[in-house]
Structures are given as C-alpha cells and as structure tokens.
Computed example of a mutant assay.
Amino acid sequence: MKKILFVILCGALLMLSACGSSEKKATGKEKEEKTVKIGIIQPVEHPSLDAAREGFIDALKDAGYEDGKNLKIDYQNAQGEMNNNMTIAQNLVADENDVILAIATSSAQAALQSTKDIPILFTAITDPIGAKLVSDLEKPGGNVTGTSDTHPDAIKNTITSIKEFIPEAKKVGIIYNSGESNAVVNVENAKKVLKEIGLESVEATVSTSADVKQAAESLLGRVDVLYIPKDNTVVAALESVIKVANEHKIPTFVGEGDSVKRGTFASYGIEYHDLGYSTGKMAVDILKGKKPSEIPVGFPEKLELVINKKAAEQEGITLTEDMLKDAKIVGE
C-alpha cells in the first residue's frame, strides 16, 4: 500500500512540475509575442508630414520595435477633410492603441479631445500652448507631449531673405487657410516681420486644397513675391502655386525646406524626418514606462537655408554668390 501511495505521489509531483514548466513556457512565449499598438493620425499627405511620420517609425525600428513583428501600426489619413480627424481619433482610441501619434495641429487637437488616458505624442505643431495641447512646454502635464516644428528664427530669416534676395519687392502675397490655427499663427508672425522690414502683405485665404490655384491667381498683378507659410491645406496643393509662379515669374518663399525641394525658390527650414525621429524616441521612453507629463516638448535645433536652382531660373531670379554661399542647393 505504501509503495502504491509513493508512486501516486511521485506521479502527482511530476504532473505539477510539468504544469509549472509548461506555464512558464507559455508565459514566456506570451511575453515574447506581445505586440505594441501605435495609431497614427495625419490630416493630409504632403512631404513634410510624411517625412515626420517616417522618422518616427525609424526611431521605433532602431529601438527594436518593427512593424509586422512586435509592433502594429495603424496609420490613418484624413485626406484633407478636417472633420475626419475626430472620427479617426475616436477609432484609434476605441482600438486601445498603446500610443497615438498625432501629426499636425488639427490631428493633435482631435486626439486630445478623444482621450485623456492613452499617451498622445504630437509632431509638426507650430504652437503647442496656443493650440491648447499643453499648458507648459517643460512640464506638459496630462497625457500629451511631443515636438514642435517652430524654430524661433525660421520665419524671421525667411521673410528677411525676401528683402535681401528680391530687393525691388514691395508687396508679398500670402496664401493660407484661415481655419488652420497653425497657419494663422505663422501668418501673424510673418506679417510682423514684413512690417518691420517695410514690406506690405496681401492675403488670399482658402478653405480647401481645391481653392489654392484660384487664390494664387487672385494675387497676380497685386504682389511681387509669394510666401506660403506652414499650412497643410496649401502645401498639399503646392504644385498649383508653383505652376502660377513659374508662368508669371513670381518668386516663391515658403515655410519649410521640403516645399523648396518640390519646386519653390527658398526657405529657412528644418528636416522633418529628424523631428519625427525625436518624437519616436519619446514614444520608446513611454513604452518603457515614462509618462508624457514627464517629457518636455521638443524643438528643432538645426535651421538651414534651402534654395532651388531650377525654381530660381523658372521664376526669373538671378542667383548671386552671396545667396548661395551658406545655402543647401536642390533642384540642380
């Protein structure tokens, strides 16, 4: 009898040991296969915003998070319809993403209205405080932080270069969407500098990208130069402006370097891929346990003059050595 009981006891112990081992394996496997979910919301497609998104994903990849392996990215684009931002944001919240990346102001505002629980990172934001995304740049508080694309000298340097490069210019046409809060801030700052250096601003506003060509044409004969601020609606239809500028030999200055690569003349800009990469590093910190409230808002450190040689020729601009000496040249 004792022998039988001993055999039964040994068997039971072996079964318990096997269960424990199997449980450890299952737990280990489950831990190994845990997939991080990140939702990305973007208002419209254009190179700067796309570059910021790509930089964000590259930073995650460099930290060991790869889409399709241990990372699932749900990228959704509002395709220029601002009302779609809220629907997309609500869907990303309902899907219980671990982090939401909101690219540009309208997307970030929609994301913040949709959740106070899921960490939100923004990028390509002109004025995070003015947009009511954070109350303090050093200590954002709440569930949101990120990176702004506003270098303190970008607008001033670009506007000042209008006077330097086109000394005969007197009136500057500005095309923007007055419904985009980021664009309004940029335009107000540009107008201050224009006034300081003795140039007059002439505004043409749009509501959608379909209005951009007509707005550009409305400025013909009224301005000497065009300035396109960081405005998602206008930049999404930038080729319309370029076509009008080339046909009528009007120099075009813009709010970011990616628009120069597309065929405008000049800008003091930043690399949006770098901006997105910095935001991606913030996401890695959050995935490792840091709270958004503990991460200060980031700003671009580098600013460079970008000039498009081909655009200069098409817009009737004579390039000088002084213009080119400190510039990054594209369009050759």
Rank of each mutant, 00 (worst) to 15 (best):
K191Y: 09
E196W: 08
S201Q: 11
I155Q: 00
G142N: 09
N143A: 02
T160S: 15
A190N: 06
D153N: 12
E168W: 07
V172K: 05
K156H: 03
A204Q: 07
V193N: 00
E196G: 10
L137K: 02
P140V: 01
V187R: 03
K170C: 03
Y176W: 04
K139T: 08
I159W: 05
F165I: 10
V144Y: 00
G146V: 04
G173V: 10
A169Q: 06
K132W: 08
Y176C: 08
K163Q: 14
S181R: 10
K192L: 01
N182M: 13
D149P: 01
D149V: 02
P140D: 06
I175C: 03
F165R: 09
A190T: 11
D136V: 00
E168K: 13
E164A: 15
I155P: 04
G142M: 10
L137Y: 05
K191R: 13
N143K: 04
A204R: 04
E188R: 06
E200W: 08
Y176L: 05
V187P: 08
I162V: 03
K156Y: 12
I175T: 11
I197W: 01
T205E: 13
I197C: 06
V202F: 13
K170E: 14
A204S: 14
V144Q: 00
I197P: 05
D153V: 14
H151E: 03
L199T: 10
N186K: 06
G198H: 10
S201E: 13
I162H: 00
L137N: 11
L194E: 05
E138H: 04
G141K: 05
S181Q: 08
S161R: 15
K139I: 03
N189F: 07
K195T: 15
S201P: 10
K132D: 10
N182F: 08
K156V: 07
K171Y: 06
Y176I: 09
D136G: 00
I166V: 14
V134T: 01
V187C: 01
E180C: 09
S201L: 07
I174C: 07
E164S: 15
